[in-house]
Amino acid sequence: MKVLVPVKRVIDYNVKVRVKPDQTGVDLANVKMSMNPFDEIAVEEAVRLKEKGVATEVVVVSIGVQQCQETIRTALAIGADRGILILTDVDADPLAVAKLLKAVIAEESPNLVIMGKQSIDGDNNAVGQMLAALLDWPQATFASKLEVTGDKASVTREIDGGLQTLEVALPAIVTADLRLNEPRYASLPNIMKAKKKEIASKTPADYGVDLASALKVLKVTEPPKRGGGIKVDSAAALVAKLKEVGAL
C-alpha cells in the first residue's frame, strides 16, 4: 500500500508574526520556517503504518519555493521514502493546491492520503476536503486515531461534543488532528540517510494546472490590540472589579 503525504513549508509556530507596514502581507524575511506541525503528525502516522508493515511506500509532496526541499528532507528523515517538489513562487490557494495534488495522485495512485487538517499560516482547513471532493473519495478529517485493515480504514475524528468513528473505503483522504500521534525527532543517522533519498523536481505546468486564483488579497492588517489590564491582589478584589465592570 502506498501512502501520499502533502507537506507545507510555513512560518514556525513559535514565531510571532509581524504585519508589513505596507499592508501587503506578513514579514517573512529572516524568519524561521518549518514543516506545518499538522503535516509532521501526518508524516509520522504514515511512517508508523510503514513500520507496522501496512504501508510499503511513503511519498511526500510539497508545493512552493525551492526551500520546500528542506521540508521534504525533514519528512524523509522521519522515514518517508521519496519526495516530489512542485516548484512555484505563487502562493497557491487551497483549490489550486488540491488540483495539483489530484494530478500527483493520478500519477502516483496512492491507496491513502494523510495530510494536515490545517496549515497554520493561512488557517484554511480546506485542502484535504477539497482534494477528496475532486477525486470523489471519502474523507475522514480531524483524525485522532487511524487503523487500516485491508481496503478499509477506521478513523476516529474530533468533532463538536466529542469523538466520531467512521469507516472509509480506500482510497481515502485522512486529515490529521493534534492527538493522532506525537512525531518523533529524526535521529542523526536518519537525517544522513535522508540526504540520499530521491526528490523529483516538477512544476505546476508539468501537471497542466493553472495557479491563477479567484481570491485576491487586498490588504493584510494588524488586529486591534487589547488595552492593558491590571493586576489585582486578592480574589475578593477581583470579584469587586468584575462586578464594577458588569462582568458578573
Binding site: V26, A126, V217, L218, E222
Partner: peptide
C-alpha cells in the same frame, strides 16, 4: 475557492478573515 472563517463583510465580494492564528487580518476579494 472557500472564503474561510470570515469575521466581517466589506461588500458582496470582499471579506475580512483572520490568518496566522489571528495575528493578522486579511481582506480578501473573491
Amino acid at each position: 475557492n472557500q472564503i474561510t472563517d470570515i469575521i466581517d463583510v466589506v461588500s458582496n465580494d470582499t471579506f475580512v478573515r483572520p490568518i496566522y492564528a489571528g495575528n493578522a487580518l486579511e481582506t480578501v476579494q473573491s
